[in-house]
Simulated assay, not measured.
Amino acid sequence: MLFLLWILAVILVVSGIVSLVRGQLLWGIVLIIVGLAVGPGGYSIFK
C-alpha cells in the first residue's frame, strides 16, 4: 500500500509540473498539492 501511494504521489506531482510548463498554472498547483497530500513522504493525509 505504501508503495502504491508513493507511485500515485509521483505521478500527480509530475503531472502538476507538466501542467505548469504548459501554462495551466492553477491545475498544476492543485495537482502538486494533492500529490504531496497523498504521498507517504512529508505531509500525508493517510498518517
Rank of each mutant, 00 (worst) to 15 (best):
V21H: 07
G39A: 06
W6P: 02
G16Q: 05
I7A: 14
V14D: 06
L20R: 03
L36D: 04
L36K: 01
V21F: 14
L5D: 07
V13W: 03
Q24V: 01
I32F: 05
G35K: 00
R22S: 11
V14Q: 02
L8W: 05
G41A: 05
L2Y: 14
G41N: 03
I7N: 04
I11M: 13
A37D: 02
I33H: 00
G35C: 08
W6K: 14
I7Q: 10
G39V: 00
V13M: 07
L5F: 15
S15A: 14
I17Y: 08
F3V: 12
S19M: 10
V13P: 00
V38S: 02
A37Q: 03
G16L: 07
L8I: 15
L5W: 14
V10I: 15
I32E: 05
Q24R: 13
L25H: 04
F3S: 14
G23E: 12
Y43I: 12
Y43A: 10
G42M: 04
F3Y: 11
A9N: 07
L8K: 08
A37N: 01
W6R: 13
I11Y: 04
G16D: 08
V18I: 15
K47V: 01
V30T: 15
G28M: 12
I45W: 12
F3M: 09
S15N: 08
V34T: 10
L12V: 11
S19T: 06
I32A: 11
G41D: 01
V14H: 02
L36H: 01
W27P: 09
W6G: 13
I45D: 02
V34G: 00
A9H: 04
G23S: 08
I17H: 06
V30C: 11
L25K: 10
I33W: 04
L20C: 05
L26E: 08
L8Q: 13
L4G: 10
F46H: 04
G28S: 09
G39Q: 05
W27L: 15
Q24F: 09
I17P: 11
I17C: 12
S15V: 09
S44F: 03
I45N: 04
I33T: 13
G42P: 03
I45G: 04
S15W: 03
K47P: 04
Q24K: 14
I17R: 04
R22A: 12
G35D: 07
L2S: 12
S44N: 13
V13C: 09
S44W: 01
V38D: 02
L2F: 14
R22H: 04
V34K: 03
A37C: 09
L36I: 10
L25V: 15
L31H: 05
I45M: 07
L4A: 15
L20F: 07
